[in-house]
């Protein structure tokens, strides 16, 4: 029976990131900021949504549902609550009671008691609480932030380390896919860091593995050299 399984399934290409082969039910997972975090989040939702499972997205008003559908998320079983306002702890708790995975747009400030209560609720209901870093596109910091320290502690953190878009040139082509490196680390069985290179998304919106996961440091690929050069330019421009 699926109800007795200890983990929520993940897409086959992502299995290598999880020590237990999936996301442990009842755990708190953080998707850290940085380019690609939304795609990674959608990939996790797509994996968990099989077998009739439901998910909810609380306080993630910008989530692109077309991209979600392309990533394989079953929209019919994704409850979207874009603006929970100040009631977010109650809404998130109600959703942890009712669905298998709850994406919570992590608030910048969270009262100790709310965080602990939600962590306990996730554990008790065997639901996964997925914290998403606050979105501040074009804000003063110009990018994504990390998930603030969560009062109950986070079991697993995921971050898209590097992101290179393919398909565009100066005025030619179109966006086709993106190479990323995803890093997973955490506590308990996830203490050993795992990395993986992926196409996220691939040309048709789905996800493809580029390399098998490797432990420890990843040998830098040639394409990253350009990226570093860009970073330097950016600093100069800024």
């Amino acid at each position: 029976m699926t109800a007795r399984r200890a983990v929520l399934p993940v897409l086959p290409v992502l299995v290598g990131l999880f020590a237990e082969g999936g996301i442990r039910k009842g755990s708190v997972v953080a998707v850290e900021g940085g380019a690609g975090s939304t795609s990674l989040l959608l990939a996790l939702l797509a994996g968990a949504g099989g077998e009739g499972a439901w998910a909810a997205a609380v306080g993630v008003p910008l989530l692109g549902l077309e991209a979600a559908a392309a990533a394989g998320v079953v929209l019919e079983r994704l409850l979207v609550i874009p603006r929970p306002g100040g009631a977010w702890p109650e809404v998130a708790a109600a959703m942890l009671d009712s669905v298998d995975m709850v994406v919570l747009g992590a608030p910048r400030r969270c009262r100790e008691v709310d965080g602990r209560r939600l962590t306990a609720r996730a554990r008790e209901r065997r639901a996964v609480l997925l914290l998403e870093a606050p979105q501040s596109i074009g804000g003063p910091k110009g990018g994504r932030e990390t998930v603030p320290s969560w009062p109950g502690g986070v079991d697993l953190r995921l971050r898209v380390e590097r992101s290179v878009w393919e398909g565009t040139d100066r005025g030619f082509g179109r966006l086709q896919g993106r190479r990323v490196v995803v890093r997973a680390w955490g506590r308990g069985t996830a203490a050993r860091e795992r990395r993986m290179e992926l196409m996220l998304p691939g040309p048709d919106g789905s996800i493809e593995a580029v390399l098998t996961p490797v432990a420890g440091d990843l040998t830098p690929l040639r394409s990253y050299v350009d990226l570093d050069a860009c970073a330097t330019q950016e600093t100069m421009a800024g």
Partner: peptide, 25 residues
Amino acid sequence: RDRRAARGADRVLGMLGDRSVFTGM
């Protein structure tokens, strides 16, 4: 599972009011 999710959605509607919970198509 569907019933549980539906109950949860109804509960949130009760907290936040009409047009606060959506599904996409």
